[in-house]
Design a protein around this nucleic acid. Structure first.
Lengths: 344, 344
DNA sequence: AAAAAATTTGCAAACGATTGCATTTTATTC
DNA sequence: GAATAAAATGCAATCGTTTGCAAATTTTTT
């Protein structure tokens, strides 16, 4: 298929030639540098458009030492299969893409399995990206700490209360855990399971909220009710199934660390004809789009991901200018639906 | 925070200096070029690791004219809000990331709203990426056609039967539509809705399958049963609600163009206490992770996304070597669950 | 109309890696 | 121990932009 593009690749130099100016003038004209006469600027910009010219990013990056690319790393947990399927993580990626684009940056997607372990090296020193956004603290923050240690611009989605030399953006996990639990308690629950992984910083905070809500309501708490499972729907499904098989229905509420976990639990309960919310109330986390589509619709804790994305980008860009940064907590609200309460 | 990295940036030249060889030797050694003595190679590689050295990607790209980056474009439909929330699209992105990494490429994520309309220019001519993978044909293929026209490497996820000068990878939409419909018919359905958008090539094929299945089963088809809606759960929910309100329950089966649509429909039906599958059987499309978590679990059509991702990458890389390419159909199978049939 | 100031433009040196070709070193052959 | 072949290394040009500074042009001032 013959193209209409000229044989030889169009470079800035050639464009300048056509325009009858030097490359420096052309370069400046294209970025609307006021050093260049307005008329010249418009003329060259028009010419560029006409000839389908685009600045060569590789050359530009080499020269300016800036890539205008941000690496987003899905920091998944190796053994579990939370994987790239989790709608919440991907939603965050989508929001980040928007937020980055708005600031003139592009998004390079990676997960923690590739790209070697030395992020600073692989992404920054190699000039593949200007900064890193890590989604999830994982079970260990070793890789993150290592990257931060070498002084590169970095921001993390996780539990903002964690003390760290880099900014962490996240929901108010304590509040989320507290509110979810309190909500169930106020609807009469007496024995509430906490379903999730306790090795994540985020989950630990939520568990603290869970505990405090019990204390405030004067409801005793039982260690048997804190259930450590992989944060997947499958694990939740299996756990609930086995627990009921072993103990019978020894609980009347569940606080889940993610909607996926909640859905797994919900499935197990429904299959055993446990009434929801009459026998067991259930609260999820994340408010993925399916939460409201469930039957019953799922009460859950929503974290403002759009706000989070914008905040993460802001904090990252601040680092480029050596401005101070700080961890930020984003809006976290309980969305009450039918899985915890009967019709309005 | 003081870093242990040397003040001045480490370049290949400096590394070579330290090693006491020329930059050419160092360069070759790092990429394990057999031209260099094995011993020298290992020595320099070790040195590189020791000093945390990474090749500067910008310089390398400029010199080699290769970026080893692939742009993945989510080609969303402007007016509807299918958006970045659709789990299926994001699953595909995840798979693509894996497949690309396996071949030594990185994934630059974009959506069709940004990056101007001239993809060839923006991504390829500017040397931001070596090739483009477009997810979704959209309602019009104008942008895709334009990009392809300028002769850049490109692959599209869509309906493989579409005639096009670029390879299209996709499920067998005709078969999917056919099987889904046939499945409902064989379970006794007599009046089946086709719920989805008919402007997409993929959807049209599915609809053909839907029609043919009716013909083969000698069940008359009614134009009233083909319902054009936005492919979102919300639109589906509203549509089903309104239809029932207006006509009563004038159908006993639904073939949906996505699981999201199916979930919306399901919600509407459940709220009206329509028995599933006793009164209405329902089939989704995509087999997102939540399909099996629904209650009842959702019968759906699964497209092998992993295979698709690998195939797309292969077809794209082929173009780099001027090898011939061709559209490919990936495995498409019906996953029968409870939304269409009672317990086994 | 010349001098000074302000505005535009151009020169040329980076940025850091890659690679064809020439050159040096080592191994082989007679 | 030459002469020849093979293996290992180095030279230097190149990829296409950007930008500090110098040079040329235009405008303003006296």
């Amino acid at each position: 298929m013959v193209t209409l593009v000229s044989e030889t690749k169009l470079t800035l130099a050639k464009l300048a030639d056509i325009a009858g100016v030097s490359t420096s003038t052309a370069s400046r004209a294209l970025k609307d540098n006021p050093l260049i006469k307005q008329e010249t600027r418009s003329r060259i910009q028009a010419l560029a458009k006409e000839h389908n010219f685009s600045i060569n990013a590789a050359a530009s990056r080499l020269r300016t030492q800036k890539t205008h690319v941000i690496a987003v790393i899905l920091n998944l947990i190796d053994n579990t299969e939370q994987s790239t399927t989790d709608p919440f993580l991907l939603k965050l990626v989508g929001e980040l893409n928007q937020a980055l684009n708005a600031k003139g940056y592009e998004l390079l997607l990676s997960n923690s399995f590739m790209a070697s372990d030395d992020w600073a090296n692989y992404f920054i020193r190699s000039q593949r990206a200007d900064g890193i956004i890590v989604i999830g603290q994982g079970k260990s923050t070793a890789k993150i700490d290592r990257a931060a240690q070498s002084g590169i611009p970095i921001v993390v989605w996780g539990d903002a209360k964690t003390e760290a030399p880099y900014p962490i953006i996240g929901g108010d996990n304590y509040l989320g855990g507290y509110t979810a639990t309190q909500h169930l308690l106020s609807h009469g629950a007496k024995r509430i399971l906490f379903l999730g992984d306790s090795e994540h910083a985020e989950m630990q905070e939520r568990h603290k909220g869970y505990a405090q809500a019990h204390k405030d309501a004067n409801v005793p708490i039982d260690a048997q009710c804190t259930c450590a499972i992989d944060i997947t729907s499958k694990a939740a499904y299996q756990y609930i199934n086995e627990r009921i098989k072993a103990n019978g229905l020894d609980f009347d509420g569940i606080v889940c660390v993610s909607d996926m976990v909640a859905l797994g639990a919900l499935k197990a309960l429904k299959e055993r004809y446990v009434g929801i919310p009459s026998d067991v109330g259930i609260v999820g986390y994340d408010d993925i789009s399916l939460a409201e589509l469930m039957h019953p619709s799922l009460t859950t804790v929503r974290q403002n991901t759009q706000q989070a994305a914008i905040e993460m980008v802001t904090q990252l860009l601040n680092q480029f200018e050596n401005k101070p940064t700080e961890s930020q907590v984003v809006e976290t609200t309980l969305i009450a639906r039918r899985s915890t309460q009967h019709s309005d």
